[in-house]
């Protein structure tokens, strides 16, 4: 005999689980794994993961949207870079294609792109990307009032108490990151890659372009990571490595004996233990980073967080399986969500 237990009444607001997809196969994987919404982008500079071999052709985007909608999953189109001066047509074309295919929302960073969407596609939801670098109620409300933004993605520099305070003062939904890259530069304002490679993270959509990354491993298996003309890290044999990004690099300085992480260490954000608190304050959406990652990553991370959110809604605990194997440098942090003193 099966006994059906009535779920306990709980104090949580069920958030939307927003998941990454860099390819159509990853998109289908995210849908199967329980994503409420999938974010993705076209194969050009209009999105901030403009990596080789990644992203969607228009035909793939159209088919992916049909597939997602058949499975009650939303597609959020990332058009979250800034057009260079006088070159907005590519961004307008991406918006128009997305609207034609029936995306559920646009994720934007640039005011001009937001303005174009508000004027030409006012019935499609507008989400403010973390790349807009808006982190105060005043800035966030400005986007809401001027462009009709319905949701803001907050930067990874806020404590849960600060997120709660912002939520009480903004006129829209709030989305926060819960897993993945832990890049804490003023997002959308970082020019480190541009300085070293001549390509812009914010306008070309590529942080540390692979075309300018070199890995050199010596006979003793020590690994050097080189971006452009600069060695940005050296890993001893067997030492866990990170992404070839300047902000995660280890540098020499006259006042230290060994190389040190000047900005941030190679590690990933994982706030699975803080999920109940985020849900309790009423965050509308939880975002998993990683459009550049494989479908194996998408399957594991999305299904883990799907189960965790559902368990919490049923009155249970997050009880999330370890995701340490998928983290950068095999290290994780709760970052500013837990404390401003995460380093």
């Amino acid at each position: 005999m099966t006994i059906k237990m009535k779920p306990k009444a709980n104090k949580f607001t069920k958030p939307e689980l927003v998941c990454p997809a860099g390819t159509p196969a990853s998109m289908r994987t995210a849908v199967e794994a329980g994503a409420d919404a999938v974010y993705c982008g076209f194969q050009n500079a209009t999105n901030a993961r403009n990596f080789p071999g990644l992203n969607f052709t228009p035909d793939e985007m159209q088919k992916s949207i049909i597939h997602a909608h058949k499975n009650d999953t939303k597609i959020l189109l990332a058009i979250n870079t800034n057009p260079p001066a006088g070159k907005i047509q590519l961004w307008k074309d991406a918006v128009d294609l997305g609207a034609k295919f029936g995306v559920d929302a646009f994720i934007v960073a640039d005011m001009g792109v937001a303005s174009y969407i508000a004027a030409h596609h006012p019935n499609i939801r507008l989400h403010l990307s973390v790349q807009a670098a808006a982190s105060t109620p005043e800035a966030l409300n400005y986007y809401c009032q001027q462009f009709g933004v319905k949701r803001v993605v907050l930067p990874r520099i806020l404590t849960i108490a600060e997120i709660k305070a912002i939520m009480q003062q903004v006129e829209c939904e709030v989305e926060t990151f819960i897993f993945g890259n832990h890049g804490l530069m003023v997002e959308g304002r970082c020019s480190l890659t541009n300085y070293v490679t001549g390509l812009s993270t914010n306008m070309d959509g590529v942080c540390s372009p692979a075309s300018q990354v070199k890995y050199e491993q010596d006979e003793d298996k020590n690994l050097s990571t080189i971006l452009g003309e600069y060695t940005i890290d050296c890993f001893d044999k067997g030492e866990n490595a990170g992404y070839p990004t300047i902000c995660k690099g280890r540098y020499r300085t006259p006042v230290r004996d060994a190389g040190y992480y000047a900005f941030e260490e190679p590690l990933s954000l994982n706030v699975s233990n803080l999920l109940p608190e985020l849900m309790q304050i009423g965050v509308s959406a939880l975002k998993i980073e990683g459009r550049q990652r494989s479908r194996a990553y998408v399957k594991k991370v999305v299904s883990s967080f799907r189960a965790a959110v559902d368990n919490i809604m049923q009155g249970g605990t997050a009880d999330i399986a370890s995701l340490i194997a998928l983290t950068e440098g095999h290290k994780q942090t709760e970052g500013a969500f837990k404390s401003k003193k995460w380093r």
Partner: peptide, 16 residues
């Protein structure tokens, strides 16, 4: 499709 290339690279199981 069962392993993540980035994760293998992070723990030095994959060299490129």
């Amino acid at each position: 499709g069962t392993s993540d290339g980035d994760a293998l690279f992070f723990n030095r199981e994959l060299t490129i």
